[in-house]
């Protein structure tokens, strides 16, 4: 009896250890590429080529110093930030407006509009790439920031997310405000926006990340180097100097990645929830 009990306890402990062991091994696989990037960014060029796997023999920041003079990282940061923050703010505001109309207001055609929103999520973006480019080219929007901001300002998916959240807010609550003399805009601004903070955080994170990490659209639409985003700058840097200046490439990659990781660590709960709640209601 005694041994049976302790055996079971040990088995349980062993299982627990095994679970943690597997999870830890996976963590190492996930993190290793970032560690690899980090240690190589502190090496000299030849050392990266010959001993990529080891810690630097001589720690140096020459890669960082050099890359800051070839690639204007502060400007790239500023450009990326300008575009992504605009996209994020517009997404939060415009999508919640539409979601409010679709969940809390009654008007003819409302259901049709909602069906169109849902249906449009099934359209692969690639289908519209060429015609959208042709259209924006004709408008003279190529090589402007608005070409990356305006078409990304509304998203069917974000409307859907916010609408699902808003349907849970009781109508009595809003009616009370209406009786007090609020018009619909005041109801929206003073009640809906503050009440839907959690879902708006999700929308903000998803739209910021999409915009910040995008390479394709900046590649298509931006011409002036002074307007490049971080991703585009990094890409052009990689293609300009194949093989050489490895230290600069690793330093640049580190400079681009580290701020994102820091922001992520501070807001991780929101990040993970943003993906956990995705479209499952």
């Amino acid at each position: 009896m005694e041994t049976g009990f302790s055996f079971r306890l040990n088995r349980k402990k062993l299982l627990k250890f095994l679970v943690h062991f597997i999870l830890t091994v996976c963590s190492i696989v996930v993190v290793y590429p970032f560690v690899f990037m980090l240690i190589n960014s502190f090496k000299t060029g030849p050392e990266i080529l010959n001993y990529p796997m080891y810690l630097p023999k001589v720690w140096t920041v020459s890669g960082f110093v050099k890359v800051l003079s070839t690639l204007n990282i502060p400007i790239l940061f500023k450009n990326s930030l300008l575009i992504s923050v605009s996209v994020t703010l517009l997404n939060v505001l415009l999508n919640s407006m539409v979601a409010y109309a679709l969940s809390k207001l009654n008007f003819p055609g409302k259901n049709l509009i909602f069906k169109v929103v849902l249906g449009s999520m099934m359209i692969p973006g690639i289908l519209l790439l060429i015609p959208t480019y042709a259209m924006l080219y004709e408008w003279g929007w190529v090589n402007t920031y608005r070409v990356l901001i305006v078409p990304a300002a509304v998203s069917a998916y974000n409307i859907f997310l916010i609408r699902q959240f808003l349907t849970q807010i009781p109508n009595d609550y809003l009616d009370a405000a209406r009786i007090d003399g609020c018009n619909e805009f005041q109801v929206f601004w003073r009640m809906i926006i503050p009440l839907s903070k959690p879902v708006l955080a999700t929308v903000a994170i998803l739209s910021f990340m999409d915009s910040w990490n995008d390479l394709f659209r900046p590649l298509l639409y931006l011409r002036d180097q002074s307007m490049y985003t971080l991703q585009l700058g990094l890409y052009s840097f990689k293609t300009q100097i194949p093989g050489q200046f490895l230290e600069q490439l690793w330093a640049a990659t580190t400079l681009v990645t580290v701020p994102v990781v820091i922001v992520f660590f501070f807001l991780q709960r929101f990040f993970i929830e943003a993906f956990a709640g995705v479209g499952l209601k």
Partner: peptide
């Protein structure tokens, strides 16, 4: 948190 690191970095980097 660790598993989410690759998700938040860009495809480019």
């Amino acid at each position: 948190t660790i598993y989410f690191l690759p998700v938040v970095t860009s495809v480019t980097t």
